[in-house]
């Protein structure tokens, strides 16, 4: 199991009235940039939450970094960085203070923490606003800060739940470049999105999820050529008969 960073086997998650994830099996190799693509309510966030140990699957097996997420939760937590879908940052702290808090939660030593804080804030274009309170940030700035928080401890496996929602094209491109850089460093990235172009240009492999079911799993190129269409958007339409609604 060592070569796979993430393994899901027949994972089901039921809430009281809905089956949010319905028998999903997939494997993500180490160093792979994997995209989970699907419309609203498809089960993307639920999948991520099970992978990072926030939710317990109703049935099935989940492992991250070779550890069973249920049984070795603590080891998994040290290994992963999670950027949740809702922008979770402390509004009453400054950007830098938010980053430092999370660095301390991962028990980084002072020098490493300072170095990584400055480096990440710079990469995501937040250096000038680092000492402003986060409640004064714009939505896109908060999202970028949220990504910094997920990466402060240099995690090997990174979960990004719709990281670029609400960002302007320029910021979005910067985040994409940053993700490519992380991939070059050998990090495994599990990305969810409903932006087709994001998945298409960025991901090594894409899984399309709809109503909790994984309906396609391949490289974007293969998907497009096998379905004999022009882009991922059309793949989705062909498979489901619907479009993915684009918000914003």
């Amino acid at each position: 199991m060592g070569e796979f960073a993430i393994v899901m086997e027949n994972v089901v998650k039921c809430f009281e009235d809905v089956v949010a994830v319905d028998g999903v099996s997939l494997k993500v190799a180490q160093g792979e940039l994997f995209g989970l693509l699907g419309p609203n309510g498809a089960g993307k966030t639920t999948t991520v939450n099970m992978l990072c140990g926030l939710l317990k699957p109703t049935s099935g097996f989940v492992s991250v970094g070779g550890y069973d997420v249920q049984k070795e939760n603590v080891k998994v937590k040290g290994l992963i960085g999670v950027c949740p879908q809702e922008t979770a940052v402390y509004p009453y702290l400054t950007g830098a203070e938010n980053v430092e808090l999370f660095g301390n939660l991962y028990a980084l030593d002072e020098d490493t923490l300072r170095y990584r804080r400055d480096m990440l804030l710079e990469k995501l274009g937040l250096t000038h606003d680092a000492h402003r309170k986060v409640e004064k940030y714009s939505g896109g700035m908060k999202r970028r800060l949220s990504i910094v928080l997920a990466l402060i401890h240099n995690p090997q496996i990174i979960f990004l739940d719709e990281p670029t929602v609400g960002m302007d094209p320029q910021s979005r491109r910067a985040v994409w470049d940053f993700m490519r850089e992380l991939k070059k460093e050998g990090k495994t990235i599990f990305l969810t999105t409903h932006y087709m172009e994001e998945a298409e240009s960025l991901c090594d492999r894409v899984g399309i999820i709809d109503h909790g079911r994984l309906i396609a799993l391949d490289t974007p190129k293969n998907m497009i050529s096998q379905n004999r269409v022009g882009n991922l958007e059309e793949v989705f339409i062909k498979l489901t008969g619907r479009r993915i609604r684009e918000e914003i």
Binding site: C52, G53, L54, V74, K77, G78, I80, V82, P84, E86, T87, A88, V89, Y90, P91, F102, L105, Y106, A107, L149
Partner: peptide
Amino acid sequence: ENGMLKRIRTTPIT
């Protein structure tokens, strides 16, 4: 409410 508790739970804090 603002999801911080969830986020904190993904870090190694006990």
